[in-house]
Structures are given as structure tokens and as C-alpha cells.
Amino acid sequence: MMDWRAIWLSARLAASTTAILLVVGMPLAYWLAFSPRRWKFLAQAAVALPLVLPPTVLGFYILLAIGPRSPVGALYARLTGGMLPFSFQGLLLASVLYSLPFTVQPIAAAFAAVDRKLVEASWCLGVSRMATFRRVIAPLARPGIATGAVLSFAHTMGEFGVVLMVGGNIPGVTRTVSISIYDQAQALNYAAAGRTSLFLLAISFTALALTYALQRRFWSLWPTS
């Protein structure tokens, strides 16, 4: 029997994370792609950090940062009456930070690849920076944006260490699919673990195949510059 509850929770978490990351990640990617600031490399390194940091380390710091004694945790408790650690919201926050580079890097690369002259041409036609972003940069960077979304979704679906540190293992609240697999394997229930693993494998492969298919279509559509 597959743990549908855990799968559903993971899907919800991945979808919310991706949505938040698109909103947060686009302006960040824009800044990384176009800012002339000299210390930009520091921000780039900070964004990329989750790629190399052990998930447990990241999870540990997030746990400290959102605990009830931290300013963030205290503020959250005052506003909502709840606590961030071992809750879906806390998990969501951790996922967003953990998957940040998976969204921001492909999008920033796609923004930077947009011919600078097209952007300048738009400005000289009297079109504002915001509208230029909407009408020129975003459409031309669409495959990069799609890649960022797919990667952060797939990455969140499969995350384990951070979830364990921040979310624990509460069925229906923080028990995600990868933790469910771990539990099943620990309980020597290999058949169930195998089914759930296969399901996750299929999802990951589909997501990646989709990403590459999108990119291939992109190049055949716009082979310029």
C-alpha cells in the first residue's frame, strides 16, 4: 500500500514552494542578472549555498532561526498563535530556502542570456523597466523560468534531511514521501518502500524529461543570438 497521504503532502509542499519561489526568485534573479554591483558575487554565493551545504546543517540553522525563542519564531507566534518548527508552514519556509538555487540559477541565466540590446530598445521606445520585463525579458526567458519551476518542484518532492530536521515526522503534517519511504524501509516493509520509490522516480524522470523537452522546443523556436 502506498502512503498516499505522504505523497499528497509532498505534492502540496512542492507546489507551494515552487509558487513562492517564482514570486521571490524572479526579482532576485533579475537583480543577479543585471545589477552592476561589485559585491554581487557574495549574493550569488549565498543563493548557491544550499547546493553544497549538507541538508542537516541547513535544517539545523533553520530550526534555530524559526524556534520560539528566535525573533522570527516569536513574531510568528504572536501573529498566528502557532509555532513554525514541526509545522507545514515551517517546512514550507525551509523548502523555499533549500530550493532557492534551483529556481534562481536557471532563471538568472535565462535573463542574462536575453540580448541586452532588446532590453535597451524597449526602454528607448518609452516602455518602463517593469513592462519591459513583462513584455520582453520574461517571454524570452520562459524556458529558463519553466526549468527553474520544474527543478524546484522535483527537488522539493525528494527532500529529506531538511524535512527531518525542521518538520519531524508527523503523519499528514510533516511526513513527506521521502520520509515515508525511509520509515517503510526501516520497518522492513520493502514492497511498500519499493512502490513509493518507483512512484517518486517516475515523477522525477517525467519532470526532467519535460524540462529538456521545453528547452529543445525553445531552441528550435528562437535560434537567434
Binding site: K117, L118, S122, W123, C124, L125, G126, V127
Partner: peptide
Amino acid sequence: QQRRAGFLFQDFALFPHLTVARNVEYG
């Protein structure tokens, strides 16, 4: 945007994802 000085680039910098009609109407 404030100066409204139209700029023609050497390689024209037409928007590749827009048709000729959309390009001309753009600004």
C-alpha cells in the same frame, strides 16, 4: 524612457518573439 529618443541599433534589435505587427506597435 523620459527622453523619448528612438534608437536604431546596428542589427535592428527587433523582438524575436513578436511578429512584425507587434514589433511596430510595441512602443
